[in-house]
Nucleic acid binder design. Structure first.
Ligand SMILES: [Zn+2]
Ligand SMILES: [Zn+2]
Ligand SMILES: [Zn+2]
Ligand SMILES: [Zn+2]
Lengths: 160, 160
DNA sequence: GTCTATCCTGTTATGTTATAACATACTTTC
DNA sequence: GAAAGTATGTTATAACATAACAGGATAGAC
């Protein structure tokens, strides 16, 4: 079933990154879009952790490597990656995170730890939402489902 | 059951506003917090429509009435109203909307029409989200559930 | 190969959303 | 009416985001 949200559990992160980059590489080739240096590097930066990074954080990293120093560079790369489904935007944080399940067309839900900043991606559980919507005739195009709270690790000893 | 999302259906909006203001008034009295002029007016401004307003839109309205011209005035009033549960923040829009069911402690879900800007509030349908969360040990404190799409009215003739 | 159309990047400038910090005024309690 | 707590006014700046245009790389047509 592999429905475990990554991020809260230990895993081979190096292979996690490698497979995500490979999946993106192949998807770009298949779709005939360019996976340029800036785009690759932006995705790699986001893949380094299962936390969300702000556009300006990404930009700072790119800039340090001589890959662009002005906001539009980062925003354009991020917009491309979001369009292609390799990255998700976390509305609550005004930030971006690499997709944990690239390839599959999906409507993700996120769990955001307010203590450590880790963000885990889960499958959407929007059955009820869709029911509510269709009941009132609303036609859903996109969903934002984000829960904020404490991850398993941060619950122990984080009474505050 | 009265589970209809307001906003997409006709209703007596004047009475809708009046009862919301009254509920807020009473809740403030009961909780011993001040329902000041700026706070009242801010809530009234949001109640005027079932659309979301940005903080600076609210500020412009307040300013036109001599109730404050600087961002913190609007942001403070909005923060108060959100705390008290009279107003919700729509993350997707960086905007605010008056609660359609004040009084009840609830976890709302929103349906945002991308064409006309109407936002309807429904009950949260986060059963699956909670299941996902507890499965991985995540402790939810707050949820953001927002769907974007087309409302019933805008579907007719809005092929674009 | 080179021309051309398209897409990508670099840069300037500006727009939008949000808060920190401190001064002043009001309200409640005693 | 003094003290404590709460709310507002104001300055300044931080953080997030995009419009618009110029230049460079890439890909397909010939
Ligand atoms: Zn994903
Ligand atoms: Zn955590
Ligand atoms: Zn509500
Ligand atoms: Zn509409």
């Amino acid at each position: 079933m592999s429905n475990d949200p990554l991020g809260f559990c230990a895993h081979d992160h190096a292979s996690c990154m490698r497979s995500a980059m490979k999946a993106a590489q192949e998807a770009c080739a298949a779709r005939g879009v360019q996976f340029t240096k800036v785009r690759q590097r932006t995705l790699e930066i986001l893949l380094e952790s299962h936390a969300a990074l702000g556009a300006y954080d990404v930009l700072a990293r790119l800039n340090a490597e001589g890959l662009g120093s002005k906001p539009p560079v980062a925003y354009r790369a991020l917009a491309f990656l979001v369009e292609q489904g390799f990255v998700h935007r976390i509305e609550r944080l005004n930030a971006f995170i690499a997709c944990a399940r690239p390839g599959a067309d999906h409507d993700p839900a996120f769990m955001i730890c307010r203590a450590c900043g880790t963000v885990a991606e889960a499958e959407t559980a929007s059955v009820g939402l869709k029911a509510s919507a269709s009941q009132s005739g609303f036609q859903i195009e996109q969903t934002v489902i984000e829960a904020e709270g404490l991850c398993p690790t941060c619950q122990t000893g984080a009474g505050t």
